[in-house]
């Protein structure tokens, strides 16, 4: 009777995949959520709102990179291309044809997903470094194209026309930062919810199998490169959404900035710093690095950028050498040790 396979299956299904989060974690999560919703009322200054908007945005971007690197194990060094595509798609549609950026958001995500498929299909069936190099080359190639393309303003970029009649439709709130704050918070929350869900679906499990044991996964019938391509498309679409949002926030399209290698570097660094492959690692990385770079920009003025990049570069090297699983793994190890003591 005990050997009845259907009963075993039922028992396995009934068992939760993860231990229920402890009460303190639930309380902490609720408190954090409440704090984030109340934040604009507590800190209404433009700078403190801007800081949080950038943290949310980068948390979303880093999470999109994490979908690729953390879940499928492939390293993209050109993620800025999707950011730029998202920014351009929505803004060009709005500036030239008056299409609402909300529709542009979807168009940008679709273009990014297609671009990801085009890059991923040939390179993702090979060893990982072919893909990493391809993304690096194509990321810089896309920047070259956009800074020469007259129709979208070439190197000088485009200004998004100011529209004052219907802020929610045109995605412009001008002086008011609070709507941007909640939109960014909502976008990031949606992104994290999506990835949280993804990690528990069959697709998510297959991806992690592809990352950890590609041969074993393939022998079990998982289409290895197909899954990687799908993950890359999803990742590109998420990054693109962040790009659309950013363009509507700053209202300027600058190919040098939107497609810059710095963005690709930052999303990588945030994820690796926090812990790639974890749900909250990218957010932790963004929450540490965004304030660091915003404040160093204030302290060092024009030269700040280079100073924070020096620190970042050294930080990545150190993390890779001593904590390849990221900062979150410190907490995780401690929790596990405590569980072990209790057991």
């Amino acid at each position: 009777m005990a050997d009845d396979p259907t009963l075993k299956l039922e028992a396995a299904r009934a068992q939760p995949l993860w231990p229920r989060p402890p009460a303190w974690a639930v309380a902490l999560g609720l408190a954090a959520g409440g704090f984030l919703i109340a934040y604009p009322a507590i800190f209404p200054s433009p700078f403190s709102l801007h800081l949080m908007i950038m943290i949310f945005l980068y948390a979303l971007m880093a999470q999109s990179w994490n979908v690729m690197a953390g879940l499928s194990g492939q390293i993209s060094l050109g993620h800025a291309m999707f950011f730029g595509i998202g920014a351009y798609a929505a803004s060009v549609l709005f500036a030239k044809y008056g299409v609402s950026p909300w529709i542009g958001l979807l168009v940008g995500m679709a273009i990014s997903a297609l671009a990801a498929a085009a890059v991923g299909l040939p390179t993702l069936r090979l060893k990982g470094h072919y893909f990493a190099i391809a993304t690096l080359l194509i990321g810089s190639g896309v920047q070259i194209v956009f800074s020469r393309w007259e129709w979208v303003g070439a190197a000088s970029g485009l200004y998004i026309p100011i529209e004052r009649t219907s802020p929610w439709l045109s995605f412009q709130f001008h002086g008011a930062k609070t709507p941007y704050y909640f939109l960014a918070l909502g976008a990031a929350a949606l992104g994290y919810l999506l990835v949280w869900h993804l990690r528990r679906t069959r697709f998510g499990f297959r991806l992690q199998a592809v990352r950890d044991e590609p041969e074993a996964a393939a022998s079990l019938g998982v289409a290895v490169s197909g899954h990687k391509v799908l993950a890359f498309m999803l990742s590109g679409a998420m990054m693109s959404a962040a790009g659309t949002f950013y363009a509507q926030y700053v209202l300027v399209l600058d190919p040098e900035r939107l497609f810059s290698l710095d963005i690709s570097i930052l999303v990588l660094l945030m994820t690796v710093l926090g812990g790639s492959g974890t749900l909250w690692g990218p957010a932790l990385g963004a929450a540490i690095l965004v304030p660091l770079s915003e404040y160093s920009r204030i302290w060092f003025g024009g030269t700040g950028r280079t100073v924070d990049l020096i620190v970042y570069g050294i930080l990545i090297v150190l993390i890779c050498m001593f904590r390849p699983r990221g900062l979150l793994s410190l907490i995780e190890d401690r929790l596990r040790r405590r569980e072990g003591e209790r057991a």
Partner: peptide, 8 residues
Amino acid sequence: PMLAQVCA
């Protein structure tokens, strides 16, 4: 893992 090598 490759991630650490590339990022280093």
